[in-house]
Design a protein around this nucleic acid. Structure first.
Length: 202
DNA sequence: ACCGCGATGCCCT
DNA sequence: GGGCATCGCGGTA
């Protein structure tokens, strides 16, 4: 009996590989919706289905940590190859999980903002909650998105209608704060409700 | 429903 | 030292 995590088996299917992440970041972000994030540790497994993500398009994107090509110890993994985890710490208490996209040298990423939690998984309606529920922290920064520790699975679930909104918590970045780079599917597990009227279908 | 605010620590053109 | 890709709470409505 494992100490932590569920005893149940996570969904199986194709594991998303580096080629999946080595594409337009907005495309990757949209296609990630409905796929399953799996976290294994201590012999247990935790997982959830992605329902909310955001694209960060540095260096142009003034809301991205990699804006202006900023290359620092924190942003370093975003300059690396696609299909790796970028995990950063914010507000003194929260970790945020991103997936690095595009080829090495192009510092872009997709932020995981909300999941529909699998069995035994706590609330995942927000980036800080996702990492807390799945036990994700600095130890996974730079990790490849491959079994066993952390990976994405396409279990063949049907695609759902995708909507786009401005990104959460992005201000003072001119046109970037208006761009529709947050992608969601209709779900009760979003980090914040989306007004039907403002939804823009893709 | 929206709004303000405190917690808390790392980052840094 | 100021800001931060957040969260949960408590107030007002």
């Amino acid at each position: 009996m494992a100490k932590h995590g569920s005893e149940l088996t996570p969904p199986t299917g194709d594991v998303l590989d580096a080629a999946f992440f080595d594409r337009e970041t907005t495309t990757v972000a949209r296609e990630l919706l409905g796929k399953v994030l799996v976290r294994r540790f201590d012999g247990g497994a935790l997982w959830g289905r992605l329902v909310e993500v955001e694209a960060y398009l540095g260096p142009e994107d003034l809301a991205a940590h990699s804006k202006g090509g900023r290359r620092t110890p924190r942003t370093e993994v975003m300059f690396g190859p696609p299909g790796h985890a970028y995990v950063y710490f914010t507000y003194g208490m929260h970790w945020c999980l991103n997936f690095v996209t595009r080829e090495a040298g192009v510092p872009q990423a997709v932020l995981v903002r909300a999941l529909e939690p699998g069995p035994g998984v706590g609330r995942c309606a927000g980036p800080g909650l996702v990492t807390r529920a799945l036990h994700i922290d600095r130890a996974l920064n730079g990790a490849p998105l491959q079994p066993p520790d952390l990976y994405m699975v396409d279990d063949g679930a049907p695609r759902r209608r995708i909507f786009a909104t401005p990104r959460v918590g992005v201000q003072g970045t001119g046109r970037w704060e208006k761009r529709l780079l947050r992608y969601v599917v209709d779900s009760p597990f979003l980090s914040r409700p989306v007004r039907r009227k403002r939804l823009r279908a893709l």
